[in-house]
Design a protein around this nucleic acid. Structure first.
Lengths: 252, 252
DNA sequence: AGGCATTTGTCCGTATGTATG
DNA sequence: CCATACATACGGACAAATGCC
């Protein structure tokens, strides 16, 4: 039954207050059928029964979501959902980060936060097929869509091969154009690894998450058309705001 | 100061208990430098100062992580991190579920739990390009590697086209061979969507997770060589036991 | 062996936050 | 608003196990 599905996961002495769990459940349930076609939630008493808690507890949850800007409560009429969709990020041979958001009609951009030339640590050296300690450009950026931070990325480029990469990235604000300005006309994604973790404190702060929420982490390698790696990047996505769409190559 | 960096993000009356926030912080910190080379955590008093809380609060966090199987506490010696390796699941045009585990030298198998012919709900009908209500075979299975449940999947097949699918799956315990027995020699993955969620009660039970842990959910469509969908499946992976590896097509 | 510092484990009491009716 | 029950967080004290001198 629907009530069982919704109630599942709500428990006591888990370290998370009931009102908070219910707030999370309502936030998650928004995508899967909670609320009618006008976005109206069931009345508080009904929600209380649904979750198996007191009406006061539901009220705490709702008031938290209202101050998060996810719900709107109207005296006498009901409580309504203000629904933001998940952003879909395509992952394909031709993944272009900056183009993804624009395609969905989302105002989105990637803001470079810092850049630095450093000796390659082992993980980066291995991905870029360089010697450990070889100079690499490290770039940190934050992806923003609809005024909400969605992802934060760290990318590395071989400094010897692309000495002007930092300048070009700053000028064009696009990896594709920056590569072009460095003399690389085309590149393809050769590998993507995906894992999921609990948000770190940095995630909580930068992506404006609540403690305990989830981040999807992608480890990606882009290469030139000869197959030589040109970029290694780790990106952390706010899991409740995105959907990663793997697009396999078309039939040959 | 370092303690200020780590302390940031830990807050009171947020609806999430301090011990829970600290447990999440330690869990997240394990991947990024918390703990020395032997996997030993700083002593409780030190962690308490680091997070700006009482030692008892840190102890609550640690005891939660111990019962999650992430930490091991030894009286008089210290608290240690238990690091199990992740299984890597390739996701490619030719993803074959049953072959994945075997390739890694892992004893793995997929156990069918139940099967049922039912009218296609909207999500399934859309994925398989059928009319809503058309008969489909629904199969639930659990993927097990090294005696630990790793994933649970629900798959749907068009019943009219593959009437003997259930029998063949039971007989061969392999999607690839069952398709072959139904007259379909080859198929390819055309779409994979990946999202991440908190574990539901069912996840906790079936995948033997602890409440609050993470599941990676993949939504996959396989098609025949003409591009007609033959299988739609949703798979829920225990996120701390797997790594999804997207393999892009080789350069043409 | 003994002595000592370090670290986890257990008990007490008390104040505050959360949840119910 | 109020009263009640339970979970959370703090502070202090001491016991138990380990390892080192």
């Amino acid at each position: 039954m629907a009530s069982d599905i919704i109630r599942s996961g709500i428990g006591r002495r888990t370290g998370i207050a009931l009102w908070r769990q219910i707030a999370d459940a309502i936030r998650a349930g928004i995508t899967s059928g909670l609320g009618d076609k006008h976005g109206k939630l069931p009345p508080e008493m009904e929600l209380a029964e649904l979750f198996g808690v007191n009406r006061h507890t539901v009220r705490s949850a709702i008031s938290a979501l209202v101050s998060e800007g996810i719900l709107r409560a109207e005296q006498g009429r009901g409580t309504f959902i203000i629904q933001p969709d998940r952003l879909t990020y395509p992952i394909s041979k031709r993944t272009r980060f900056s183009a993804s958001l624009a395609e969905q009609g989302q105002r989105g951009e990637s803001r470079m936060m810092s850049h630095d030339v450093m000796p390659a640590p082992e993980e980066v050296a291995q991905a870029l097929q360089l010697d450990v300690g070889a100079p690499v450009l490290q770039v940190r950026s934050v992806g923003v869509g609809d005024d909400t931070p969605v992802s934060r990325a760290t990318a590395w480029f071989e400094h010897a091969r692309f000495p002007d990469m930092a300048d070009n990235l700053l000028r064009f604000n696009s990896v594709t154009r920056a590569f072009a300005a460095c003399g690389l006309d085309d590149y393809v994604r050769i590998s993507t690894r995906i894992e999921a973790y609990h948000a770190t404190l940095d995630d909580v702060e930068i992506l404006r998450l609540s403690p305990g929420s989830i981040v999807l982490v992608t480890f990606a390698i882009n290469a030139d058309l000869e197959g030589r790696p040109v970029q290694y990047s780790k990106t952390r996505f706010a899991a409740d705001r995105v959907s990663l769409q793997v697009e396999h190559a078309p039939l040959s």
